[in-house]
């Protein structure tokens, strides 16, 4: 039995000036499913993630998040509530790691509960030795873990990540993938944009590829290892 849908995106179009970046994009995201989104530089991966997180307005689109299809503008509040977007280089607010984690929690929580939740996130992301460190001084891998811990506290239905393992060493990449795996286990839908599909082979359920402003699904998982063949016949349009 297939998982219930969280988000269905239909007829998404986005143009920057004269350049059509995304055309008639169709996409379905399901709980606990990990989708990999690949594509060349400027293919529109980041734009698609930003539209899905409510940060970028498309030219046209229809989105269903369980209440029937609506325009992006009408869905925006739902997107901002349920979808979390993590930048390629996560932004850390000025303050300690604890402050940054606390930011993801809603205001008005009792102090004790708040501290307990932050402590749990610190344990979850193995940040124990860093909790009082200024977040801006962290390395790339540590920032990535703090941003994932913030996401864990925020508990979104959908997590969008832009190049989650870019510029990370092997150990940092392994830790990031472990954390992504635990998100998946918790039923959160993942959409990961990456140039390096091969790093995610053990994690992904579907491989989507942006090619010539269209979104296609790569059915043959072996093609993940051969990006130059991604315009091959085994691509299937998601539309």
């Amino acid at each position: 039995m297939s998982n219930p849908l969280i988000l269905t995106l239909s007829a998404l179009n986005k143009r920057f000036g004269k350049r059509q970046v995304l055309q008639e994009i169709e996409l379905v995201l399901r709980p606990g499913e990990c989708n990999l989104l690949s594509g060349g530089n400027g293919a529109g991966k980041t734009t698609l993630l930003r539209i899905l997180s409510g940060l970028e307005k498309p030219d046209s689109s229809r989105i269903d998040m369980g209440n029937g299809f609506q325009s992006w503008r009408r869905s925006r509040a739902d997107l901002q509530k349920n979808v979390l977007y993590l930048h390629q280089q996560p932004y850390m607010f000025d303050g300690s790691v604890r402050y940054n984690l606390g930011y993801a929690l809603p205001g008005g929580l009792p102090k004790q509960l708040r501290n307990n939740m932050i402590d749990s996130a610190i344990d979850w992301a193995e940040l124990n030795h860093l909790h009082d460190t200024p977040a801006k001084s962290l390395s790339g891998g540590e920032r990535q873990r703090v941003s994932l811990a913030r996401a864990w506290l925020r508990n979104p239905q959908i997590l969008l990540m832009d190049e989650p393992t870019a510029n990370l060493d092997q150990e940092a990449r392994r830790r990031t993938l472990d954390l992504l795996r635990s998100f998946k286990k918790e039923g959160i839908s993942l959409l990961l944009a990456s140039h390096d599909p091969i790093h995610f082979s053990s994690l992904i359920d579907r491989h989507l590829h942006l090619y010539d402003s269209h979104l296609v699904e790569i059915e043959d998982q072996k093609l993940m290892q051969i990006p130059q063949l991604q315009s091959h016949v085994s691509l299937r349009s998601t539309a």
Binding site: G54, L55, L84, Y91, D94, Y103, P106
Partner: peptide
């Protein structure tokens, strides 16, 4: 950094909280 605004919003900050966050940054 423009990501400050986007991070605040995507972490669930309402408009007012996001504005104060940017002012703080």
């Amino acid at each position: 950094d423009r990501r400050a605004w986007e991070t605040a919003r995507t972490l669930g900050a309402n408009l007012m909280r996001a504005v104060f966050t940017i002012m703080r940054e």
